[in-house]
């Protein structure tokens, strides 16, 4: 436990507070009521912000890389291996490696979070774009579509299900990994968890923050499923 240092202002003090807090109960509703506003809600909003930034940048970056990887096949393998390698670096270590370069800042954690989204997004985009049937491309050319039009109107829509499938996985795992951000900066849902770990393992706080993180991930996943139905009305597969 020596590695955990309490950072938060909300320190459940087992000496005072309600009976539930004193006995370190599993679900102290009075504590939740008292600290939703100053602990859990800000952490949740920070978590959403951190994840949203990471997934957006990761998506844009992976998209550019995928365009390169599809156009120039020779580069596909090196990009894939690089993304694979980034994925195997332990997140705790990556954060610390970046701290000397970018400090204890949001930039540091975003670089790490973005690099974890690249593998899954890149792979799915490349596979989705490659799986576009040659017939469809041929037909598009026959209809006189330019290269740009073919991409926007034929390739991209046909690859959309694979791209969104990758986006779902990347989003859910980013929300999950973002809890570790609290190791570097006091933000996100990991913060109450680290605080609770430092305070004789306060159960209610860990459970509440954990439930919020899982709930947020599943909610985001559900939104993306809905999004896919809107974007690709022709495929009814969930």
């Amino acid at each position: 436990m020596n590695a955990v240092v309490a950072a938060g202002p909300v320190i459940p003090n087992f000496g005072q507070g309600s009976k539930c807090e004193q006995t370190n109960g599993w679900w102290c509703t009075d504590w939740l009521h008292a600290h939703w506003g100053d602990t859990l809600q800000p952490a949740l909003f920070q978590h959403i912000e951190l994840s949203l930034i990471a997934v957006s940048i990761g998506f844009a970056l992976a998209f550019l890389l995928a365009l390169v990887g599809v156009r120039y096949r020779l580069l596909d393998a090196p990009i894939g291996i690089f993304a694979d390698f980034l994925y195997t670096i332990p997140s705790l270590a990556l954060f610390q490696l970046l701290v000397p370069l970018t400090g204890l800042t949001v930039t540091t954690v975003e670089i790490a979070l973005v690099s974890y989204t690249l593998l899954i997004l890149y792979r799915n985009m490349v596979e989705g774009l490659r799986a576009v049937p040659a017939d469809a491309l041929e037909a598009a050319r026959g209809m006189g579509l330019t290269r740009r039009q073919t991409f926007m109107r034929v390739e991209l829509p046909l690859a959309a299900p694979a791209i969104i499938a990758g986006l779902r996985i990347a989003t859910v795992s980013t929300i999950s990994i973002a809890t570790i951000v609290a190791f570097v900066i006091p933000k996100g849902l990991g913060r109450p968890i680290f605080t609770a770990l430092g305070q004789d393992v306060f159960k209610t706080e860990i459970l509440a923050a954990g439930a919020l993180a899982v709930g947020l991930a599943l909610f985001a996943d559900g939104l993306l499923v809905l999004g896919q139905r809107v974007v690709t009305p022709w495929s009814r597969a969930g």
Binding site: V172, I175, T179, I193, L197, I206, A213, D221
Partner: peptide, 18 residues
């Protein structure tokens, strides 16, 4: 597989501690 991916390992370890 969906729920499994959504479970943060930090939460699991914290929960396991309890």
């Amino acid at each position: 597989s969906n729920v499994g991916r959504a479970l943060p390992s930090l939460v699991l370890i914290g929960f396991g501690l309890t």
